[in-house]
Each structure stands twice: as structure tokens, then as C-alpha cells.
Design a protein around this nucleic acid. Structure first.
Lengths: 334, 334
DNA sequence: GACGTCGATGTTAACGCAAACATTGCCTTG
DNA sequence: CAAGGCAATGTTTGCGTTAACATCGACGTC
């Protein structure tokens, strides 16, 4: 048995299908009594408008496409969940198109897939260099927003203020009395990494502190562990800021294995505030990005582009906040 | 400028739009030369079929709807990512519909949203009791698969073999020489929890070991910490199996604070193998579910339902594997 | 009281595609 | 060499919806 269509509702309510359409879309010029009759018919038949047909005739579906690389990582996963929720509240569905690499080809293939579905807009989570270039060459016929993308790119962008977050973390350690702060950074091609490095370096410079060499890593606990083993061997290290919480976890374990106590011997600050960070040994002081705010801003920018052709400043920055726990203390006295 | 449609391609290639359609859908009866001409025209115009139109005429879109509750948790996030990837390989897009609660109303609302888009199939990640009831009352006019759902329900189901995983974990601890194993469980309304409890209890019984009281918790490190504080105070506890890795993290910290060493004083085994589990203090022995296999099985069942109306045994169980690390050792001698 | 106005509704025409049916023209077969 | 079949292609129809235009009646205005 075929699902009921608009004409079925119309017949039952004794009106034309167009009147049903008007009721559905909240058009003003429908008599109250008619509206009620139509709504009753809709309820009786369990009618549900066919989005595909609507998308066909309007040329746009109520779907937002998201392009992301690795939705298993905590950050992207949280962002995706927040986007989904925000979109749902605005009446949009979310279609995910994950992608193996963030190079031009993969991204534009994913975008094209979304375009084939005539999505209303696209959000690209594009935290690395290679994505930036790809985005500028994309077809312009659909609203598009980049999240965590290239700050210098002309594409509409929402981003966590990495610099401010790193600054807060570094300053927090300096304020605790440390002479300087070491940094374990994320992958060098991520904008997140770059911003956090900048904020860290800038804060040290402003405080007149020495800038120690950078320890480059990726986002994994494994890399954190490796760096931690080096940090543990250098007696002068008293404070470490890691580019995310998983790195911090690895560092904590390495320090622990070397018999160093956190925060007594070395203080550590992370980034992300993963839910379990409060249960690291010791509970981790970290920087919390507001994913919900990022999601809201992204959708705002998307909808703004939908309504007006040329919107205002298509750029939003979301400030993260420092969460102080027990992994920071004054440096040990010599 | 309007996006090119099939007729535009047809005109350029000097054929009818139907021939273009045949080329696109890989129909056999098209001359090679014609096919090439059409493909050239497609490339020249940058033509891209309109999925919405296709969905309208076929009554089905190439989209799979996923209903999930909290895609921030590691398990669901991994599953979603795996599903997306598997679906993409089969030419399907994935639309996420997350849901605040897994009660009847929320689930059926999410399902209906997917139905409105005429999705080809729906995957419901329904790990709790309340979802089970909801699913049986759902409209039957679309292929549907449950993941981690009620093992007793008649709905097609793919599930990780929780019992086997828990059995492996428990047996591993018994084999190390422990007289018995304590268990910190997940939320009582999750099937995952129930299965893990069953496997644990059953293994102890089979070995003739005493079954100690259960420590009920949720999935959070916080709850694990709370339970760990109790476990640390009971001298007889030498081995703990926690229902997931985050609980284990909380337990580890509590034990650490009480001056107990893992694995020297107490052994701990988790569940999930989150990426950072190898960097806990100490590296955590845990049970790894194969999310990719679950995703593949789910899609299989979905596609099977698409093709034949009444398929075979619509039920698949995926066996997890034990990952041995350093959090397990022989019990301390008294 | 004829006429314009406006609100409520109906009618018709797309939207882009695939399925069903129709039409060619060539090749096989007896 | 005519009948039949079949491969290649064209034509028509309809999917369910919205937009544009058409109609109809009630009301107020001069």
C-alpha cells in the first residue's frame, strides 16, 4: 500500500491539494475552519510530506551536508553531534560525508556528493592546510561554511579561538610561578596546532620568558608519551602545555614512569576537556572549546547565506575557557 | 544559471534523455559509441544527476538514516563513523538523526523524519530497554536494522557479543591466578551492561569462583572513580573488570590515590579499547569490539532486506577480542 | 447599484528523472 | 526472401510537490 500523498489528504478533506500545501507551509490565506479540516485529514491518514518531491520542485532540500575527516576523534565527534542537534532544532537534517584525506580531490568529491542531493548548505570541518586550497576552488552555488579552517581564507569561517585558548593555558602556568612553559604541539598541518603554538609563543614573549624548543607530535596519547619521556629527562622542565588532552595523558604516564609527580614536580595543561580529563592522574587542567557555540555560529552563517545573497562579515570566533583542576601548581624549589 | 539536467546532456550528445539515463544507470543495451558520446557530454557540462528527482520517481533515495542517542561517546561515535564509511563504499549517504532519549516517542519521531526523506533503510543504535519496545511498533515499510538492541526482540539485529567479551575478560583474570573478579557495570538499562554482567557472572560460576556483589555505575570515569574508592578499601579485592575503559580510568585513579599499585596489588580489565587506553597508568588490558564488522553486518542486513522481501536469519553477532596490556598480573601473595 | 479589491480556493504547469511502452533497423532463420 | 526476433533508441507518462495564474464570491466605495 502506497504512502498517502497530498491528493489523498485533499480528497478526504474535500479541498484541492494546493490548499493542503498551503496549510502545510503555513500560508496566511486559509480559513481557520479549512485548516482544521485539512489537519484532521492529515492526522487521520498519517500523511507525511515527501521531502524528495519538495526538494525537486524547490531545488533545495532541508538537509545540511557535513564534510569531516575523522569523526572518531573527540573534537570532530562533539562538533558533529552539536551540529546535528542545532540543525534539527532549525528543521534540518544532517548528512555526513566523511573523507579519508583532506586533500582537494577528496573534499570536492564529498562536496559534489552533497550537491547531488541538493543540500541546502554544506559545513566543512577543514582543520588542515590542504583543505584550505581545495575550498576556494569549489562551486559557489551553495552556501558553505568552514569550521576550524584557514584563518586567512576568504571562505566563510567559524573557528575556535586557538590563540586565546593557548594564551590562557600558558598564562595560567606562568601565573603559577613557572619561569617558562614547554609545549607539545599537534600535527604541523593543522590550523588548530598552529594557533595553539602561536598563542603559547606569544604569551611567553610578552612575559619576557624564554621560549623553549617545540616538541612536535600528533593528537595521540602515544606521541604524548614519547614527548613525555624526553621532558622527564630534562631537569629544567617544570611546566608543559600540550595541544590536547590525549597528548597530556601520554605525558602524564611518561612522567609517572620516571618517578616525577604532577603537579609537584611538573605542571601540565591540556586542551579539549574530554569528559574523562577530570579523572586523569591527577585531574587535568585544560582548555574547553564550546562546540555547541561553534555549531550554532556555523548554522547561523549558513542560514544567513541562504537568505541574503551577500551577507555581512562571514566569520565568527568562539572563545574557549580554561578549566582549572589539579595538574597545575607552583614549580618545585631548587 | 541553472544546473544542467538530463535533457541538456541529451541535447549536447544528440540523443534522447532516456539514453542518458540508461548510460547513467549502466543499462546493457547502449552502443559503446553512444555511451562514450553521452559520457563526454556529461563531463563537458559538469552534469550531476539530481538525487531528489531520482528519489521521487523511484520512491527510494540512496540514503541510509541512522538513529543514535549520544554520538559523543566513543562506542557510538566509532560505530557511526564505520557505518558512514561502509555505506559510502556501497554508494549510500548517511543521514544522522540523533535523539535526546531512547524512548518510544523520540525514536519514532526520528524514524519518521527519516521516512519523510524516503531513506532506503534505517539503522537504529538502540542499546537500552526502552528502545526495544518502541521498535516493534514502528511502520514496517522500510528496511530497518537494530544495533546493540534487545537480543530477544524480533527486529533484525546486529550486536557485539557482550557475553563473550565479558567472559574473555573474566577468564583472563582468573587465568592469572585471581580467586575471583569484581565487576563495575554500566547503566542497568543498557543491553551492553546486561550482557557483560551475564558473561562475567557465568564465567565465575563455571570456574566455581565466588560471585562478589556487583558495583553498578554508568559509563563515566566519575562513576568509576566512585566505585574505585570502595574497591580500594576492601583488602580482598585483587581483580576488577569494568564495563568500559572510562570506568577503568576512574578506578585506576582511585586505586592510585589509595596507594594501591596496578597490577601488583590489583588487576584491572576494561572494555572498548579506546585509543588512549594503551596510555593509561598502567596500559589497560581491555576488550576490543570490531565496529567495522558491526557496520558491515548492519549494511548487509539492510541491503538483504532491500532485495528480497523476506530474508533469512536477520541476526548477526560480532565477537570482540581481548587486548592484553599491563594492567593484569598475578594476585599479590598474602 | 456597478465596479474595483481582496481573501479564499481551485487549476495548471513545471521540477528531473526512470519505467513502460513504442519505434526503428538489422540480423537470423527457415 | 519473408517472418520473426532482438538490440538500440525514442516517446510518453507519472512520481508529489510548489509556484504561478485563474476563479469566485463578499465587501466597500463612489
Amino acid at each position: 500500500m502506497r504512502a498517502p500523498a497530498m491528493t489523498d489528504v485533499a480528497r478526504l478533506a474535500g479541498v484541492s491539494h494546493q490548499t493542503v500545501s498551503r496549510v502545510l507551509n503555513g500560508h496566511p490565506n486559509v480559513r481557520e475552519q479549512t485548516r482544521l479540516r485539512v489537519q484532521a485529514a492529515i492526522a487521520e491518514l498519517g500523511y507525511r510530506p515527501n521531502r524528495a518531491a519538495r526538494a525537486l520542485v524547490t531545488g533545495r532540500s532541508q538537509v545540511i551536508g557535513v564534510v569531516a575527516q575523522n569523526t572518531t576523534l573527540y573534537g570532530p565527534a562533539s562538533l558533529l553531534a552539536a551540529l546535528e542537534q542545532t540543525a534539527a532544532e532549525a528543521g534540518f537534517a544532517v548528512s555526513v560525508g566523511s573523507v579519508r584525506d583532506l586533500d582537494h580531490q577528496s573534499i570536492s568529491a564529498a562536496v559534489e556528493r552533497h550537491l547531488a542531493h541538493r543540500v541546502a548548505g554544506i559545513v566543512v570541518i577543514a582543520p588542515v592546510e590542504s583543505a584550505g586550497e581545495a575550498l576556494e576552488r569549489l562551486p559557489k552555488d551553495v552556501p558553505l561554511v568552514t569550521v576550524d579552517g584557514d584563518p586567512r581564507s576568504p571562505v566563510p569561517l567559524v573557528t575556535v579561538d586557538q590563540v586565546a585558548g593557548a594564551r590562557a593555558a600558558t598564562q595560567h602556568l606562568l601565573d603559577a610561578g613557572h619561569r617558562t612553559v614547554w609545549h607539545v604541539s599537534g600535527p604541523s598541518d593543522w590550523f588548530d596546532s598552529a594557533g595553539r603554538i602561536d598563542g603559547w609563543r606569544e604569551t611567553l614573549r610578552a612575559a619576557g620568558a624564554e621560549v623553549p624548543p617545540l616538541l612536535p607530535a600528533d593528537w595521540s596519547a602515544a606521541a604524548g608519551y614519547r614527548c613525555g619521556q624526553m621532558l622527564a629527562r630534562m631537569p629544567e622542565v617544570t611546566a608543559v602545555f600540550t595541544a590536547n588532552d590525549h597528548l597530556a595523558l601520554g605525558v602524564l604516564r611518561a612522567l609517572h614512569e620516571h618517578g616525577l609527580r604532577v603537579p609537584d614536580d611538573i605542571s601540565v595543561v591540556g586542551f579539549d576537556d574530554v569528559p574523562e580529563a577530570a579523572y586523569f592522574i591527577p585531574p587535568l587542567t585544560t582548555v574547553r572549546p564550546d562546540f555547541a557555540a561553534v555549531a550554532r555560529a556555523s548554522l547561523d552563517l549558513l542560514l544567513a547565506q541562504l537568505e541574503t545573497d551577500a551577507a555581512g562579515p562571514l566569520r565568527r570566533t568562539i572563545a574557549p575557557s580554561l578549566v582549572a583542576r589539579r595538574s597545575v601548581a607552583a614549580p618545585p624549589r631548587r
